[in-house]
Design a protein around this nucleic acid. Structure first.
Lengths: 157, 157
DNA sequence: GATATTCCCTACAGCCACTAGAGGTTCAAG
DNA sequence: CTTGAACCTCTAGTGGCTGTAGGGAATATC
């Protein structure tokens, strides 16, 4: 942190400091630069990245939006929009609402999945694999209520 | 489909037929063979894969287990175990229970996320991006209750 | 027998959002 | 001047597929 005697904040942060400030890994910052979420910063004489406070803000925004589950593409849009404060915020609202719907859909699918798993586990009375009802449920189409057709339970949920 | 006159089922299925029977894409079958979930089948004179009914069973099992959200590695174990019907089924049960716990954890995180998203959306009263509370919440650390540290809402949830 | 359509083959690139590692350079403290 | 942490670039890997290119094979129809 370097505040010079004129009171003018030159404030050039290393990538490690930025990472700490925005609770983010160093590699992730370089990745965001690579995909164009963060603008390439100035470099010092030794070719190391030097960031301003603006970068802290931008990265914090990105990390929060990621925590909220927004995709990188959605964040790109949100950033574009927040750079134009005079636009109506319908689109921001729309993005958020669509995201909420997706989260709700995932929740619904996951809770059906949870119920089916519970049911399956209750069936298992111990014993040998040969009589195991869990294996049986997984083998037999007819015993299986849950069909996560457009949900695979891993990637999207 | 070839059932000969003796009533003996020679039953050699093409990859496409197997795909239909197990509700699975052709590429996915080849992928499962590649990663060793399905054994390499016989080939006909023209180098095309020919499957037996056993393959239908195995693939159906795999697809159901995937629908239940088990990972490929877990399925590998389940398959190994179902090949040994005399083993006690504790391990099967354990796998299922651990999976259930993961699903429940994801559900819990997702529902916190849903609540936060709802709260955020309610704050937005229309108007311009400049006053948009959604952007504001995402920008400002202090307005943000949800911190999905080991959950990013996309990949793992 | 020719043709058209559909199936099948291999091999490889791409998806998402990072993460990890190799192998080298620069910086700050003592 | 030396040490060691932090930095640099580049590449490959994660999971679970999906899609495509550029062919060969099987089958139905004429």
């Amino acid at each position: 942190m370097n505040v010079d005697t004129t009171g003018f904040e030159t404030s050039s942060l290393s990538i490690g400091t930025l990472a700490q400030r925005a609770e983010c890994k160093v590699q992730t910052i370089r990745y965001y630069e690579q995909i164009g979420l963060l603008p390439p910063p100035e470099r010092n004489a030794g070719n190391q990245r030097r960031y301003t406070e603006d970068a802290v803000k931008r990265l914090t925004f990105i990390r929060h939006a990621r925590d909220f589950g927004f995709t990188v593409e959605a964040i790109r849009e949100l950033l574009d929009m927040s750079d134009q404060p005079d636009m109506p915020c319908d689109h921001v609202d729309g993005l958020a609402k669509r995201h909420l719907e997706e989260v709700e859909a995932r929740l619904a699918r996951l809770s059906v999945l949870r119920d089916e798993l519970r049911r399956m586990i209750l069936l298992c009375q111990g014993g040998n694999v040969g009589e195991c009802r869990i294996i049986e449920v997984l083998s037999d189409h007819r015993l299986c209520r849950y069909h996560g057709h457009d949900a695979d339970g891993n990637a999207r949920d």
